[in-house]
Design a protein around this nucleic acid. Structure first.
Length: 316
DNA sequence: AATATCCCCAACCGCCTACTA
DNA sequence: GTAGTAGGCGGTTGGGGATAT
């Protein structure tokens, strides 16, 4: 994959008459950076780039070190435990990959982000769009749910008169609700998870929309506040997806619960007006009272994760 | 065997925040 | 108070290997 001198007009740029390389790193560059970091440690990254004799910007050096050269990196495929943990953490944290990565020793935010976007997201969507004998509507409600992005949610939630910046909105979305009450039930459903299912109602905490769950997919579930039985919202773990291919019993079970999911999402859709109303009404409250990042302590919240049943490694 | 398509992932880009002068 | 700079982060892109046709 390595191209020592990638073509293209942007493969180099120039700052202070020094040509800065871009593109893939050569083994020689890796050696230089590795040797420098091991002997000098991390400092100002622009100094690292200069002192290590690299024709790279500091940012590029930082990325290369963090994502590839760091000695404590764990290479190789994600374990099923890691997959479960990523799904759980994403349900809590949303797309805050760095915070997710901080709880998976040896994994980088970039790695987790890629894994999510290429594997988990696809599997979740495939599961959600699998044929359902109970589907009554021409459009699968899960398609709606999974196609919703943060922008959709913001449109759903924000009064058009709001002048919040996008980042402020994102902050609002991610910190509006106290997720702790939802996590309380998490372990009640771990037996289901161990059987190959992951209860998203327990684990998809209210990082985002108040009465709905927020993930990279947007609202993908709901709490009991809008009339959905939490115990019936299931999403199969990645492990179960492979298992189900050879397991009729599991397959039947999954279909049953997928139908529950779809039915529940119908309920969610039916309650969108209610949801919209509630959230818009609360808009002022968010902006005035709930924008403080420390309103609830994410670290405290995520301490729960350290006792995640599947972990076979020590969380930091 | 050749070609097309898919998919993974390394790296870049742009934005935001914190810090400093 | 303001501008400049660096670091950090999430989103996105594009190269190239894998797979399908």
């Amino acid at each position: 994959m390595w191209n020592p001198d990638p073509p293209g007009k942007n493969s180099m740029n120039s700052i202070n008459n020094v040509k800065l390389r871009k593109g893939l790193w050569s083994p020689e560059e890796d050696d230089k950076l590795m040797n420098y970091m091991l002997s000098n440690g991390q400092g100002c990254w622009s100094d690292v780039a200069r002192n290590a004799g690299l024709q790279r910007c500091g940012k590029s050096c930082r990325l290369r070190w963090i994502n590839y050269l760091r000695p404590d990196l764990k290479r190789g495929a994600f374990s099923s435990q890691e997959e479960e943990l990523i799904i759980h953490l994403h349900s809590v944290l949303g797309n805050r990959w760095s915070q997710i990565a901080a709880r998976l020793p040896g994994r980088t935010d970039n790695e987790i982000k890629n894994f999510w976007n290429s594997t988990i997201k696809k599997r979740l969507k495939n599961t959600s769009t699998s044929p359902s004998p109970n589907k009554n509507n021409a459009s699968d409600p899960t398609d709606v749910i999974f196609s919703m992005n943060e922008h959709d949610i913001m449109n759903l939630c924000m009064d058009s008169s709001s002048s919040s910046s996008s980042s402020m909105q994102a902050m609002v979305m991610r910190n509006r609700f106290d997720p702790l009450p939802m996590l309380e039930n998490k372990y009640d459903h771990m037996s289901s998870a161990a059987a190959g299912y992951f209860n998203i109602s327990a684990c998809m905490t209210q990082v985002g929309v108040g009465e709905g769950f927020y993930g990279s997919h947007g609202i993908i579930g709901s709490t009991g506040n809008i009339g959905v039985d939490q115990s019936e919202l299931f999403i199969p773990s990645l492990e179960s997806i492979s298992i189900e291919e050879n397991n009729v019993t599991n397959n039947t079970f999954e279909k049953t619960n997928n139908n529950n999911l779809i039915n529940n999402i119908n309920i969610i859709n039916n309650n969108h007006n209610h949801l919209d109303h509630n959230i818009v009404e609360r808009g002022t409250y968010w902006e005035e009272e709930n924008l403080r990042m420390g309103e609830w302590d994410m670290e405290d919240l995520l301490e729960d994760v350290s006792s995640f049943p599947f972990l076979d490694f020590q969380l930091e």
